[in-house]
């Protein structure tokens, strides 16, 4: 996803002379193509995130379309008030790009896990919040971000997420992508767990469970229409995310609760008090039930 993002940003920067990239002293072996081609539109702000977010707002106020690039909590929690006041309240075209959402940084520990970013970003008025499901969605999301003005949060995975899509889908911010249509259950994922969700749906099919898969890449604004349509059509909903409380599970809960219909609803997300050991991203996710096997098991239980 990181590479897809930078490749697309370079391509877009050739078309959009106002694109400006700021990094918080991170991005080794990722950002170099941009730096080489557009040095006058690049800035390493150093390890000073509050200032970085303020500088980004100032640059955006003066006409640039700014992208801030850093890891997990550093461009989000560390400078949250600058995002709230300087960027969002002033409706400035700044996109905060956070790499390593969830447990991407596996054995590096709690400081590097992005567990609350979606929860806190989605409550900011006017901020578009996107967690693409794969490199294809990442590229398409970036293109759509450039079609709108206003602040945005883009949450990326770190490692080589597999391409879920063979061909480019019709991507639109705020509109869920439907990867398969089924009648027994609706699986909704956000971010890089899309691949696991699709695998689980394929396995469920072999077990005669027909699942709808929605890639809910945009948490704000949320595609309530698709969510409700498929929730009501299948009667069972499962959310899957590599994130703690307050993210996809919460936004879907709000919509379903207000719909007032009897539904079976299960949320798979990370429990923070269980994250206390070293391990790979895969290992840590599996420990917490964020795996295709657990999606399958949970769905089977729900469909009994």
């Amino acid at each position: 996803m990181r590479k897809a993002f930078i490749q697309e940003l370079v391509a877009q920067a050739r078309i959009h002379p106002d694109i400006f990239l700021i990094v918080g002293d991170l991005g080794f072996s990722v950002i170099e193509p941009f730096v080489e081609e557009f040095p006058e539109r690049f800035l390493n702000a150093g390890i000073a995130e509050q200032n970085m977010a303020g500088v980004a707002a100032g640059l955006a106020y003066e006409g640039y379309r700014v992208f801030i690039y850093s890891i997990a909590n550093f461009p989000t929690l560390r400078c949250f008030e600058q995002i709230r006041n300087d960027i969002c309240y002033h409706s400035l075209p700044v996109t905060i790009v956070s790499v390593g959402g969830g447990l991407s940084y596996g054995s590096q520990g709690y400081s590097h896990y992005g567990l609350e970013d979606l929860a806190v970003m989605r409550v900011l008025p006017g901020l578009t919040v996107i967690a693409p499901g794969d490199p294809v969605e990442t590229r398409l999301a970036l293109r759509d971000i450039l079609r709108q003005r206003g602040p945005c949060y883009l949450r990326l995975g770190k490692t080589q997420e597999l391409k879920v899509y063979e061909n480019e889908p019709e991507f639109q911010i705020g509109k869920a992508l439907i990867l398969s249509e089924g009648s027994d259950i609706t699986l909704i994922s956000t971010g890089g767990v899309l691949e696991k969700t699709v695998k689980a749906a394929q396995e469920l099919k072999r077990k005669n469970i027909s699942a709808t898969v929605l890639s809910m890449h945009t948490l704000s604004p949320l595609d309530k229409e698709s969510l409700l349509k498929w929730a009501l059509a299948t009667g069972r909903v499962m959310t899957i995310e590599e994130h703690g409380a307050g993210g996809l599970a919460a936004v879907v809960s709000e919509v379903l609760a207000m719909a007032g219909k009897p539904l079976k609803f299960v949320c798979l997300y990370l429990r923070q008090n269980e994250i206390d050991v070293s391990g790979s991203q895969e290992y840590l996710c599996r420990r917490q039930g964020i795996s295709d096997e657990n999606i399958v098991q949970t769905a089977l239980t729900m469909c009994k």
Partner: peptide, 19 residues
């Protein structure tokens, strides 16, 4: 630029000056 929370003006101004 709207202010109120302290310590926001100078970083924002740095962005303007850099622009």
């Amino acid at each position: 630029f709207s202010t109120g929370s302290l310590g926001h003006g100078l970083p924002f101004a740095c962005g303007m000056a850099l622009a």
